[in-house]
């Protein structure tokens, strides 16, 4: 009979229409600015520079070796090495970046800078609410914008951050042991001469 199929179809849509008012699970829309889904742990967009402790200058891990600058495929990192040195997390004096800029309008979120950094000094961020009124300066992130605390990193990527922390702690311990050993050796070497 002509028209039966249409009635069946209309029954389906009517069920959806009425159901959407009574069954909460039908409305899967996330009302974005008010509610938001948690981001998956492996989500990434743009790099940031984690620092230890509370001082973004003293705790910054980056030593301005410029490896990331050279490796970055679209060449969106700009680093100027400092004149002086500051102690790194192991107390060893190191250069630090006087300028560290990333142009996130160019960055393609490839994470290569993170992979090549030998100092765990650059990591991928998850902050995606970056729309700006202006597309040049506002999208060029300076060192002060990029430096974020290690706690922040632990919060956004717990697994990776724990791994990195363990690695750094092991390295620091090894360095301390080596220092102690060499200090002992130095005392051993110097004492007979005395």
């Amino acid at each position: 009979m002509i028209g039966i199929g249409i009635l069946k179809g209309m029954a389906v849509t009517a069920r959806n229409f009425v159901g959407s008012y009574f069954e909460k699970e039908r409305l899967i829309t996330v009302q974005y600015p008010e509610e938001r889904n948690p981001l998956p742990e492996n989500y990434r967009n743009f790099p940031f520079l984690p620092y230890d402790g509370d001082d973004p200058h003293a705790g910054l891990r980056c030593v301005a070796c410029k490896i990331c600058e050279k490796e970055c495929p679209p060449q969106c990192i700009y680093i100027v090495k400092s004149e002086d040195k500051k102690p790194d997390y192991m107390g060893k004096p190191q250069f630090y970046p006087a300028v560290f800029d990333i142009d996130i309008s160019v960055c393609m979120s490839c994470q290569i800078c993170v992979e090549v950094c030998p100092f765990e000094a650059i990591k991928m961020d998850k902050d995606f609410e970056l729309s700006r009124r202006e597309r040049f300066d506002a999208l060029l992130l300076r060192k002060s914008d990029l430096a974020k605390s290690n706690e922040y990193y632990q919060r956004i990527c717990p697994t990776d951050a724990a791994e990195v922390d363990a690695k750094l702690a092991a390295a620091a311990e090894a360095a301390a042991k080596k220092k102690a050993v060499s200090a002992a050796a130095a005392t051993a070497a110097t004492s007979p001469a005395r």
């Binding site: 959806n16 229409f17 959407s20 829309t29």
Partner: peptide
């Protein structure tokens, strides 16, 4: 709004 509800949207 009605079309949305029919498609289970707001």
């Amino acid at each position: 709004k009605i079309l949305g509800r029919i498609q289970n949207r707001y």
